[in-house]
Design a protein around this nucleic acid. Structure first.
Lengths: 216, 216, 216, 216
DNA sequence: TATGAATGAGGCTTCATTCAT
DNA sequence: AATGAATGAAGCCTCATTCAT
């Protein structure tokens, strides 16, 4: 009987950290392609090249897995932004760099982050995770606006600030969606457009030029 | 477990149109509360006080039912807006009235429209339906901007227009979400805030004050 | 083309009440044969000649199904006993008739009740249901003892009564197990034996002949 | 989800006998708390502070492990009883001491033996093991009764003896259950009560006072 | 000796959808 | 017109058990 030739390095039995990343890669891919509900744990496991029980052992429930995806991708995005927009720069520069980094990230992960994020908005169980992420963003943006306002010697109610920040974040998310749907679009150009809308609008507010509803 | 329920003495043999509205009411309610996937045809039928086969006979598949909901609620909203913002008014007045009507509608259907809409964004099968609705909105907004621009003797590339309109619509949707989540918030005030962001930003654009990325 | 001959009465589409009994019959059979855990819903459904979803629709979870079995069989047994031991008879006659009815029932359902009951004692989720049933029995027995004692002009502490009743019930259950495992054994004879142990022991107690631990 | 735990700095490389006892301790604990099926090898291994393959290497299959638990605890109990009830004592003294030792043991291992035993009664695979243990007990009790009968110059059929012994053992088990469920109860008092029921009842039988079913 | 990595198999449960009355 | 009865299909999750280091 011929000796069994040792098979080429098939890379079985990898350490946990590696497998976890493989799983998350697969999960992001499948969740993005199919959506949370239509995605099946079977497909994710198969795509990760591993058996289902391992996915459960390492990353838990389908929901927990989705949250883990959100977490990893969200953290990556946050890092990309934070690395670009240092807190000691002037507000407009920070905003611009932040936006550019954001759209750059989204553009580079067109089938990862943006789609994932879009899925999450509609599914109740992820409200918490998402709210936290968006809250961090809103807070940052509101902080920038507030800082700029104070520099101009002005001040605005907290709710006003929050709502405006919310609108800006919403507009940005909306453009991110748009970008994800238009593979040929240029992230930087999109960032510029958003900057135009955002900054010009905000600039007016900063200068006290408030629009008021006409007397009906 | 299917409980044995004594059938309620409801009115049988209603005309089809009435029954359909009852079903849609129930469907909107259940879809909003549970989300598309978590909603079950059983619950919808029960909530409508009717048997499942009737739902299928009248409104088809679960997906078709959801689309029907989207359709009815979307149409109602469009009517509300269109009725408020006559096309012969000046752009700013139209925008204001449109926004006010929109947020008024969302505020009045906090658990209907906004939630439904949010659900739909994440589910692939409804991309088409939603894209159509948003496209109509974007088109209207872009038209308003374009009209105003031309009045000023200026003109902007089509993509630019679309993207800005997209941003405005996105910001508005975002605030609609916020409104849906804050039952105590005042729709009119929210509309005012949105108007501030939108109009001030747009106004700058209209006057040619474009922000440009700094030379890196 | 030949007309399709109407198939012989295959008895599809039976009313709910009938199907429920069929399911319970199958469930009792399978649970008894395999034990709660080893029993599979698949086998139960197949044995009942129906699809699994119907079982869930009518009788709920596996646990709920088991409880339903316990309930039905327990109730039947209680009826058998109650019908035999009228409350206006003297205590010894009641006890005798009750025991005879009990062992008769167990003997007639050797693969139903006794086995089911035995399964239930070990599984945590059914503690409640079982405790309730046994409590009813213990209460009845204790009542009989108490009644007899009072007739003799004597009285015993409540805990004493409960514990003695518990012991009698335990002995009875034990013999029921024995009977279930010995298909050839005669229920009536077993009842007589149990009566001997129980009544003679109780009789002594009734006459105040208490055993006391010797001085160590 | 398998949490990433830094391995505790336990003592490695213990002698086999020690490790086995650790495992059995853990197994008894987990089986008692969860029941045979709900107990997982994972939890047992973790509770024993050891990896799963070791459990399999030392004690085999889950079933074998359970049997090993039953064995160890049962043997301990038997020793406790045997040590207390020397075979050369009079029957009543033996019975009393045996019962006292038994309930003392159960009381001292409320969450070990009694619960384990209760689990085992319902699970088919352990019928054999349990039957053996109970048979030994029944035999001992029957022997005592027989011995006492012969002392009185009387004799009873073997089945009669077995059944009566079975009833006594059943009553005792039942009270053991009761004791396990009532942490505040006093084992010695429980033993006294059982002795009353058992001995009084048996005593009558020994004296030939047999109860007979009335001619119906 | 000791363990982290890995999986085959199988069970429970749910749901959209349709049939027969 | 209307519904109770019925199911095929599929998904999540868990677990006992073993391999390779």
């Amino acid at each position: 009987m011929l000796a069994r030739v040792s098979s080429a390095p098939t890379f079985r039995r990898l350490p946990r950290a590696v497998r976890e990343q493989q799983m998350l890669d697969a999960a992001v891919k499948v969740f993005s392609r199919r959506g949370f509900h239509a995605a099946s744990m079977d497909e994710i496991a198969e795509d990760a090249g591993i058996s289902k029980p391992m996915v459960y052992a390492y990353l838990g429930t389908k929901e927990e897995l989705f949250v883990a995806c959100l977490h990893r991708e969200g953290t990556r995005m946050m890092h990309a932004i934070a690395g670009a927009a240092a807190p000691d720069l002037p507000a407009d520069v920070r905003l611009w760099r932040g936006l550019r980094a954001f759209f750059g990230f989204v553009g580079a992960h067109r089938d990862g982050w943006a789609v994932l994020y879009r899925q999450a908005r509609g599914e109740q169980p992820f409200a918490g995770e998402l709210a936290a992420m968006r809250a961090r963003l809103v807070e940052v943006v509101a902080g920038m606006l507030d800082h700029a306002l104070r520099t101009e010697g002005r001040q605005v109610g907290e709710t006003d600030l929050e709502v405006v920040a919310y609108a800006l974040v919403g507009a940005t998310e909306s453009l991110a969606d748009w970008l994800a749907d238009h593979p040929e679009a240029d992230p930087e150009k999109t960032a510029t457009r958003m900057m135009n809308v955002a900054w010009q609008g905000a600039a007016q507010l900063l200068h006290g030029e408030t629009w008021r509803p006409p007397a009906v």
